[in-house]
């Protein structure tokens, strides 16, 4: 990914450290740690803090496709990991404060699945998909793609980190879902490739990170949450719950997104991504609820709370992003930081 533009002192320093060679600049690393401590204690809300969310995003990016100019050796650098851990701890605490989990069901597959369907069936905030279907403008649809490009151009990757941490029934279920996400080995059917085609179809750049500078902190937070859950074995229950919640809230919104793009005259090269998800996720949500999440809890009932937390957290942080976007649109503003990037 190309280097993003810094959004404050902390992200500026982390990007310059990453662009330097490992082993050099111990001063800079010590200063980075100090700045992180300060930024965390100062921020009114880490979920909406551009500087902290971008810094965390860049540190996570080292575990995905990397950042141009950043040496591969930085991935497991203990000093950077310490900084990452500081931000993660504050981020996780904030997410836990934002998340409400109801009384736990029995630790059986059927009860867990039913509870997840109950949680995801509750109306959380404004409906962006209904708005997109009925009245969003061309620019707003493109904004939607820009927000989603951060996750969808590498769709499924954060949850794939969970595969080696599961076993038995829940592992088979996760692999079954992920295989479908990756097109069952057919490049053209990989969901990330379908999304790239959608972006090109409306004239957007499908390079990963092309619009990173345009998306607000909350969009980065949505992505950082997946990386937090995916990269920590401790949170394997949460990443599983997160995926289940995503699958369970996907079919209907995607059908409405497809309708919105169709309404503005876009053809199947643009809508196929959404159409594919209507059918795929109607399958995935069943596998995810019963076999993956339910199977995990049956094999290790201690993970019940984490599974529900992961689902609730995914829904809560996504709702904050939706609120941000809809607030902007309702007052005829762009929901992006730099509107001209997208259109």
């Amino acid at each position: 990914m190309k280097q993003p533009s810094p959004r404050g002192e902390l992200s500026a320093l982390v990007l310059s450290v990453l662009a330097g060679s490992r082993g050099s600049g111990q001063d800079a690393l010590a200063r980075l740690d100090l700045l992180a401590v300060e930024a965390i204690s100062r921020t009114p809300d880490i979920l909406l803090d551009d500087d902290l969310q971008l810094t965390l995003f860049c540190l996570y990016e080292l575990h995905y496709s990397g950042i141009d100019e950043a040496g591969d050796d930085w991935e497991w650098d203990p000093d950077l990991l310490r900084v990452r851990h500081r931000i993660e701890a504050a981020f996780e605490q904030r997410v836990r404060d934002e998340t409400v989990v109801g009384p736990p069901p029995e630790p059986t597959s059927a009860a867990v699945c039913a509870e997840l369907f109950r949680m995801t069936g509750e109306d959380g905030g404004p409906s962006m998909s209904r708005f997109v279907a009925k009245s969003a403008t061309d620019d707003q649809l493109r904004e939607l793609l820009v927000h989603r490009s951060i996750s969808q151009l590498r769709e499924a990757d954060p949850h794939t980190f969970a595969i080696p941490r599961l076993s038995g029934r829940s592992k088979a279920a996760l692999v079954e879902i992920q295989a479908d996400e990756y097109g069952n080995g057919l490049l053209a059917r990989m969901h990330s490739v379908l999304f790239a085609r959608t972006m090109r179809g409306v004239g957007l750049d499908d390079t990963y990170g092309a619009y990173l500078d345009a998306v607000p902190a909350i969009t980065l937070a949505v992505n950082n949450l997946m990386s937090l859950f995916g990269l920590h074995r401790r949170l394997r229950g949460a990443i599983v719950g997160h995926l289940a919640a995503y699958e369970m809230t996907s079919s209907q919104p995607n059908r409405l997104y497809s309708r919105g793009f169709g309404r503005l005259g876009y053809g199947s090269e643009v809508t196929e991504y959404f159409d594919e998800h209507v059918e795929a996720d109607a399958v995935h949500e069943q596998i995810a609820g019963r076999d993956m999440a339910g199977g995990l809890v049956e094999s290790d009932p201690r993970l019940l709370g984490d599974v529900l937390f992961g689902a609730a957290a995914g829904l809560a942080i996504d709702t904050l992003m939706t609120v941000h976007i809809m607030d902007a649109w309702e007052s005829n503003r762009s929901s992006l930081r730099t509107a001209e990037v997208a259109v």
Partner: peptide, 13 residues
Amino acid sequence: SVLKPYCDGSHKL
């Protein structure tokens, strides 16, 4: 479902 014979999640609605 509008995708019959496949499910499209409409049963929830």
